[in-house]
């Protein structure tokens, strides 16, 4: 392609645009063709699929709508939901404490910087690359059905996620401030406490809030798998065909998630 400094004549421009259009056409053809070919291979009918959507929704609304009698179980559901929120928040907090501790060793001002950082990165990758479902199942076999299993699954996922995020923040934000305090003659730990951590902490807090939101959503799934918390309540109502109770459970989860998202958005604004 000719550079703009050398000038682009009309003929060249037309060729460039034609080539771009051809590229778009072929991309569309490959994506669309693959979709149709795979649908045919899996015997998936698009028409039936699309028509099933309104039917499914009307089934949902008919069966999942709670009625007056459903409300009697609300205190039980809320107490389980509260336990789930507690689990989500505590796992995120404990993971954050561990993550801050580990990431602190990776600050540029700390000794043995490179070696420790590699180990911490390895831990983060290991924890993150095993999906939550797999952690839940693995821990279920080891610790059986109880709250500790759910807590550990959420804790390990949160730790992997927060470690990764904190490492990136530490790398991006800490070098300039570390240098500024280094020239005063301050040592590594002092620079970490007085310069690096105050600089990165607002971003750390923002990620911890996100992790809490995420954990509340994930806690439901973990609960289904490990037989604990609100997830277990939903699962048992659903399997015993008490759709109205399953419906109110889902409604409670949605309300809590939205409320927490709003609270954390407000908190983020305050610390920004």
């Amino acid at each position: 392609m000719k550079s703009l400094e050398n000038g682009l004549n009309y003929q060249d421009l037309q060729t460039q645009l034609r080539q771009k259009r051809h590229k778009q056409f072929w991309t569309l053809l490959v994506v669309g063709g693959s979709y149709l070919a795979l649908s045919w291979l899996l015997h998936f009918s698009n028409t039936i699929g699309i028509w099933a959507i309104p039917k499914s929704f009307s089934w949902l609304f008919i069966n999942f709508v709670p009625h007056a009698q459903t409300m009697q179980t609300l205190p039980d559901i809320l107490s389980k939901l509260l336990a789930t929120i507690g689990l989500a928040i505590s796992s995120a907090f404990i993971a954050a404490i561990f993550a801050i501790g580990l990431v602190s060793f990776c600050a540029p001002v700390m000794p043995h910087y490179l070696g420790v950082k590699r180990v911490v990165r390895l831990i983060a990758s290991f924890l993150r690359n095993i999906p939550l479902v797999a952690w839940s199942m693995l821990l279920l076999f080891t610790f059986k059905q109880n709250d500790l299993t759910g807590f550990l699954a959420l804790f390990l996922m949160s730790l992997g996620f927060l470690l990764r995020a904190f490492l990136e923040i530490m790398e991006d934000e800490s070098s300039q401030i570390a240098e500024a305090l280094q020239v005063t003659g301050a040592g590594g730990l002092v620079i970490l406490c007085r310069g690096v951590l105050p600089t990165v902490m607002p971003q750390f807090v923002s990620w911890i809030l996100y992790m809490i939101e995420n954990n509340i959503r994930d806690a439901t799934l973990v609960g289904i798998l490990t037989g604990t918390g609100i997830g277990f309540v939903f699962d048992s109502y659903f399997k015993s065909l008490r759709y109205d109770l399953a419906g109110i459970t889902v409604l409670c989860i949605i309300v809590v998630v939205i409320a927490l998202e709003n609270i954390s958005a407000q908190l983020r604004r305050v610390i920004a």
Binding site: A180, L181, T184, A186, V190, I191, R194
Partner: peptide, 9 residues
Amino acid sequence: HGRLGQKNL
């Protein structure tokens, strides 16, 4: 912070 170098840990 200019004094940090002269402080103990």
